[in-house]
Design a binder for these strands. Sequence first.
DNA 1: TTAATAGTGTCTGTGAGACAGTATCAA
DNA 2: TTGATACTGTCTCACAGACACTATTAA
Lengths: 281, 281
Amino acid sequence: MAVLDGSGSGIDATGERSVYRQGDDYDHRMPYDPSAFPPFAVTVDLVVLTVRRHALCALAVRRGESPYKGRWALPGGFVRADEDLTQAAARELAEETGLHAHDASASAQDNGAHLEQLATYGDPGRDPRMRVVSVAHLALAPDLPAPRAGGDASNARWAPVEELLEQGGHGRDGGTEAPLAFDHAQILADGVERARSKIEYSSLATAFCPTEFTVGELRRVYEAVWGVALDPRNFHRKVTGTPGFLVPTGGTTTRQGGRPAQLFRAGGATLLNPPMLRPEV
Amino acid sequence: MAVLDGSGSGIDATGERSVYRQGDDYDHRMPYDPSAFPPFAVTVDLVVLTVRRHALCALAVRRGESPYKGRWALPGGFVRADEDLTQAAARELAEETGLHAHDASASAQDNGAHLEQLATYGDPGRDPRMRVVSVAHLALAPDLPAPRAGGDASNARWAPVEELLEQGGHGRDGGTEAPLAFDHAQILADGVERARSKIEYSSLATAFCPTEFTVGELRRVYEAVWGVALDPRNFHRKVTGTPGFLVPTGGTTTRQGGRPAQLFRAGGATLLNPPMLRPEV
DNA sequence: TTAATAGTGTCTGTGAGACAGTATCAA
DNA sequence: TTGATACTGTCTCACAGACACTATTAA
């Protein structure tokens, strides 16, 4: 019988659902016989974004094994038996970047990265070897030192997202470079689009900034993520006028040159109302 | 494991497709030996929302098997070996409601339901029997006849979401009713929040309406989903003034009483700019 | 007639965008 | 000094919200 009743959701109303059967008949008394459903591997993949030199960049790692050996891919790995999806993503993030993610409850700046679930990709055949369902996560981090991937710097880098998303893009050496492995170009594009829309109505853009930052630095984050130029004067009026967005620390800095600018920390507000408006829409 | 070559994903660009082999070694590395990762079951769960009698309602089915036997849960089931996640969700939706989902590309109204991925839930222990990762989907449907779940009406119903989300809620019979099975209360809450926010900046509210509808009917959808009262005159001015949102069909109806109202179909616009504003924020 | 809903017009306050002008540093 | 960035003020247009008013049906 169907008793599909299996799912962690499975619901079996009357029991007339059919079940995946691998060749042999499925015994309804054993709904969780592993042979009753297809074997899945579950992984987490990470879209780790940062702003470097006025460009939105993503962390890419070079694949050391086939398929796609030598191609760039998003970092990721298997979900372990005893961890939930967020833990798996946080673990991978720490392994790749040294960052520890702060969950949504972390109020003050702890120099961690923002981490959230992005979407799940599970097309049969997205991995040529077996059925792999990948729960992609999005991480936003301040500008970091050069990445380390298993200690080997040549196998990990921050790459501008436009470069990674170019169709049959060109590498830095000028030669044609293959696009990202697997469906990672799609995952990256989805992550970038999530980041672009989310900084509109939330204070998440501060996740790209160091603990203390100026209004101009925050504006350059918006400009890099959206790929537009913003009016510095209107931007200043807007962000300083939004309650809870920015908290002045009292200090100033001239690291951007020009007149000393006030330093701020991220305020407690997470939702911006009214939102920042992305031009050209 | 950095540079986790294991991260799955993918599309095989070269066409050389290897096959999952159960039993023999995948290759010299361990990561793809089936015994190298925990056994996962992957399911889809559905948050199917509709508006009935001025209330936002969700489809619930009664569990026929333990655990949570007799409790209400969200519909769902296993992902099959040959289908992707969206196909699995669409199949479950059709089995439960008879609706066929239209993908995002469907422009004209085909009386199908809107279907999109919501989020993925994979806590170890969310299903007491084994490790189940559920990819939840959100479906928005017009008001439907009574649901059928395997032909047995007593095992499926449309329930107001507040009722399903009450802590230790009370059933219709006045007695205390257990909350939803598994972590389905969380999934439902996430789906409701997604729907509430998405009708702000998209034309998705029309997915709750029949093919032809009046401005007043659309307004009652917003009021039911948001749980607020909207000014009919400002609402009318707003939606009829947004290009691409509504297309007049030429017909009128008096099914709501009062002066005959123009009938509209959903226009081609999917993103509303500027968005509908939810009061009381 | 009353009651209900549909639809239009008009005012006001908020805020985004444009942009003039001033402030304060480094070189 | 020049040139950079930081900040303030002011104007205008768009639009959300409030609400008066008219239109068209059923009972």
